[in-house]
Simulated assay, not measured.
Amino acid sequence: MTSTTFNAATLPANDNVNPYAFSVDLNGQWFTQKGKMIAYYGQIRFQALSAGPLDMLVAESFHSPLYAHDWIVAEGQGKLLLADRGFDINSYDLDKGNLTIRAANLLAFEPGLELKQSIIPGFLTLIGTGRFVAASNGPVHFVEPPIRVDPQALLGWADCPSPCHHYDHGYVRGVLGAARMMFGVGGTSGEEHQFDFTGEGTVLIQSSEHVTSSDAMLRELEGQIGMLGVPGLRQLHGTIAQRLAAEQQH
């Protein structure tokens, strides 16, 4: 078995090196998620979004405060190699588009795109014209609504309304479902709970139900706790305690 040895001149420009790595031909600035850069050639520096010289760039392109800690700006000239734990890597071009994607799977994007928080926890929305790079657990499939998708297989959606939650009738009305809703026992599979898409647009589905872990989603849920009030916080505390007890028995 032979392998190709690359250098700064032979690496592809804004294309895949292989299914698991992408080469950005950097000439200016890109937003990149922390930990996704595996190597680079050239004169490239990495700055936190809080850096003073980036104030204008961040004000124009980055509108997601809960995720700001996860991102940096790569600036300069050279080849920037991106990867994510052996997942499939692909780039996508938006042309005055609107695409929402799982936050943990978004690796990088051009400043021509604006990043906003989706109303669905754990997802981010890109708006405008430009390129972005994303990871998926297996190949990505593009499907049209109406469709219902396993939440763990959902990678994102483009140019269509946000999904609604759909719960299986047996889950809602059945004895087992009632017990799960009351005590938080057991997980929710794609057969019981789906995201329901309607209208025009495209839904992106990855080929596996394994989801990249995301501390950002936990932070987003924590950010909503303040709206519960004392009674809600007490109820949530009891539910979490019951769920932890049930999980420790498995």
Rank of each mutant, 00 (worst) to 15 (best):
T2E: 15
T4F: 11
F6H: 15
N7H: 04
A8R: 12
A9Y: 08
L11Q: 04
N14Q: 02
D15C: 00
P19W: 01
A21R: 05
V24Y: 06
D25H: 09
N27L: 09
W30T: 11
W30V: 11
W30A: 14
F31G: 03
T32L: 12
K34M: 03
K34R: 12
G35F: 05
K36N: 14
M37A: 15
A39N: 11
G42L: 06
G42Q: 06
G42E: 04
I44R: 08
I44Y: 08
F46M: 05
A48F: 06
G52P: 02
P53I: 03
L54S: 07
D55W: 08
D55R: 15
L57I: 05
S61E: 05
F62V: 13
H63K: 10
P65R: 09
W71A: 07
E75R: 10
G76S: 03
Q77P: 00
K79Q: 11
L80R: 09
L82H: 01
A83M: 00
G86N: 12
D88L: 09
K96M: 10
G97H: 05
A108I: 08
L113I: 04
G122C: 01
F123H: 14
I127C: 10
I127L: 15
I127G: 07
G128C: 09
T129W: 06
T129L: 03
G130Q: 01
R131I: 00
A134M: 10
N137P: 02
V140A: 07
V140K: 08
H141Y: 07
V143F: 10
P145V: 00
P146A: 10
P151K: 13
Q152S: 11
P161V: 03
P161L: 05
P163T: 10
P163K: 15
C164D: 15
C164S: 12
Y167K: 10
Y167P: 04
D168Q: 03
G170S: 11
R173F: 12
R173T: 03
G177N: 13
G177F: 05
R180E: 12
R180H: 14
M181Q: 13
G186I: 01
T188I: 07
E191V: 02
H193S: 10
E200D: 15
T202H: 04
Q206D: 06
E209C: 06
H210W: 09
T212W: 02
T212L: 13
S213K: 09
D215W: 11
E220M: 02
E222S: 12
G223R: 11
G226V: 06
G226L: 07
G226Q: 14
V230P: 09
P231C: 04
L233S: 03
R234T: 00
H237N: 12
A241V: 14
Q242Y: 00
Q248C: 04
Q248S: 11
